[in-house]
Amino acid sequence: MIKRIWPIAAAVMMDSLRRKVVYVVLVFAALLVLAIPSLPDYGLGVESAVYREIALALSYVTGLVIALSLAANRVPSELEKRTVYNVLSKGVSRWEYLVGTWLGILGVMAGAIVAFTTVEMVMGYFTYGELMWRLWQGALATWLEMGVISAFAVAVSSVAGPVVVVTATLAALFIGHSRSTLLGGEGALAFKPFYPSLDAFNVVNPVAHGTGVPLVYVLSMIVVFIGFAGVCLSLGVALLGRRDL
């Protein structure tokens, strides 16, 4: 099983190294990080916490763009170009193909987020003279949330084209962060336990302004990640499994 999943994940990672969009997004985001201390409002004595907050936001947007660009295109492209025939005819299950693709995207995002957070750390150190280790907690939260988002995108992409995938994923992202808005009224309180909220991955306050995230919370984030990603991938496998290729 792993012998078949790993080559697919590796192929996705190798392919992404050739995609200009990944580098363009990373370079652009890195330039923005370098520009944070020069913002007019920022120069008036605002503390390094704001730097951390903006850095986290940039990491998030960078991760999102990379996740969408990879997850929305990979499967539809392989189905349309029929490169998937050569893969599935070799005894690879559809679920192995989908999970391998998702793991490859997860790997690319891990590399991008690690690289980006390193730039933020270095920039923060030279600007404020402090090592902002807590940024790594934020990086982990971003990576986990993007893992869920890319699992959703991969699932939708098994039956839809890139435009639909991006639209549906952005809608899911909006819904995922709108629990308090959408279920604010008392009449909807009973639905809260079932709401697919992504707020669990929002650690901006403790990372940027607080003392960081406790280990127990990090572990619980991972559990939420596994749960949501598992549900999304199961849905994707079910959809792809019913599809005629």
Binding site: R82, Y85, N86, L88, S89, K90, G91, S93, E96
Partner: peptide, 16 residues
């Protein structure tokens, strides 16, 4: 999938 492990397939107009 397990039934295709001893099978080779050339699709019409193979894409890579």
């Amino acid at each position: 999938p397990s039934g295709r492990r001893h099978l080779g397939f050339l699709p019409e107009q193979p894409y890579f």
